Simulated scan of single mutants.
Amino acid sequence: MVSDRLATLKLPMQFEVNDDLLSRIQNYTILGRNETEAMLGRSALYHAIFDAQLQKEGLPEILRYLPVIESGMNAGVSSSAGAAGLWQLMPHTARNYGLTVNPLLDERMDVYKSTLAAVKMLSALYDQFGDWGLVLIAYNSGPSKVLSAVKLAGSKEYSKLSKYLPRETQVYVPAFVAAAYVSKFYAQHNLIPKSPVMAKEGFRSVRVHQQMSFEQIAKATQLSVGAISKLNPSFKQHQIPRSELGHLIILPAEGIGQLRKIMAKEVENQKDLFQTTYVISKDETLESIANLFKVKVEDLKKWNTLQNNELVINQELQLFLSKKSLINKV
C-alpha cells in the first residue's frame, strides 16, 4: 500500500523503497503522531507561499516539503550549527541572498523572504548539478562535498556516490521522500493537522510599513503576543521596524481588518511629521534629547526599537518631528 502511494508522488529524483525509508514513514505516522500533526498544522500556513515562489522559478512543487526535514515546518527554530528558519539557512548564505540577519531582525525566520532566498538557492544548485537528487544533497551538505563525492565515485548516480557523503547526507533523500509521503497521505493514516494558532477564517498576510510593537498588534487583533510571535518569529524583540518596502506579517484573517484601521490611524497621525536622523553626542541621554525636541522618551524608544535607555556616542536615532518644531541642530 505504501509502495503504491509512493509511486504516485512522481518525485523528480531516484530513490529506493527500503527498510530505512519505511522506518522513517513509520516514525511520522505511528511513533511520532503528535509531532507530525503539529507539523502538518504549521504546513497549512506556508504551502501557498512556497508554491507561489516555486512556480515563479519553474521548480518542482514537491520541493514544498523540504522544510519538513529541515525545520519540522517551524519558522522560529535554530540549529546548534547556526542555521535558522523554515529552510535552515546559515547566516552567510542568507546574507548572500539579500537577507538581513542581526539581533533585531532575522529574515531567515521571515516566511516570505527566506522562501524567496531558498528557492533561488535551489534554482542555482539545479543549474549547477542538473539533477534534483544531487540538488537535495548539495542543499544539505554544500556543493563542494557533492562535487568531491562525484569525483571519488566517478559517477553522478546517487547509489554510487552516496557512500562518499556524510552519514546525515546519505539519508537525506530518503528523509525527503518520507516527508513528502506523510505530507501527501496523512489522511490515510488518520492524522489530523493541528494549527499552532486558532483562526476561524484562516490566515492572511498584511504589509506593515510603520514601526509597530507586537503589543500594539495584540491589542488590535485580540491575539496574545506569544501567538503573534509564533507566526512571525523573525522580529527578535517583538518590534516591527519602520520600512519603506514594508514587512509582511502573518495573522488570523479575522484580525486583519482591525489592524488595518490602527495602521491607517497611525499614518494619519504622522502625515505632518518630518523624519530625520540625529547623531548622539557625548553625555547626551534619551531624556535630554526628548527635552530638546519636545517629544516623549517612550516615542524615541519606539521609533528606534530600543529596549533600554542606553546610548553610545555617534549612535544614530530616527526622529519623527512636527515640521514646526524642526530646528537647525538636526
Rank of each mutant, 00 (worst) to 15 (best):
V146M: 04
L134T: 07
Y126V: 02
K145Y: 12
G154S: 11
G154H: 11
Q128V: 05
D127G: 07
F129H: 00
L134M: 10
A138R: 13
S148P: 08
A138E: 14
L152S: 15
V150M: 05
K156S: 08
K145P: 03
S155A: 11
Y139V: 07
V135S: 00
N140G: 06
Y139G: 08
S155M: 11
D131F: 10
G142A: 10
I137Y: 06
P143F: 01
A149H: 10
D127F: 04
A153C: 08
K151G: 06
L147G: 00
L134V: 05
L136H: 12
L147F: 03
V135Q: 01
Y158C: 02
L134C: 05
N140H: 13
P143N: 02
K156M: 06
I137R: 02
Y126M: 00
V150S: 00
L134W: 07
L147V: 05
V146G: 02
K145D: 06
L125T: 03
V150A: 00
Y126C: 01
Y126T: 00
Y126D: 03
N140W: 06
D131W: 11
V135R: 00
D127E: 10
G154V: 07
N140I: 07
N140Q: 11
L147K: 06
V150C: 01
S144P: 09
A153I: 06
L136S: 10
L134D: 07
A149W: 11
S148C: 08
L136V: 12
I137G: 04
S148N: 14
L152A: 15
K156G: 02
A149L: 11
L134I: 06
W132R: 05
I137V: 15
A138Q: 15
D127T: 08
G133A: 01
A153N: 10
V150W: 01
L147S: 04
L152F: 15
V146H: 03
L136P: 12
L147D: 04
N140D: 11
S141M: 05
K145V: 05
G154E: 12
K151T: 09
L125E: 05
V146S: 03
A149P: 09
Y139Q: 09
D127Q: 09
E157W: 07
I137K: 02
Y158F: 13
F129I: 00
E157Q: 15
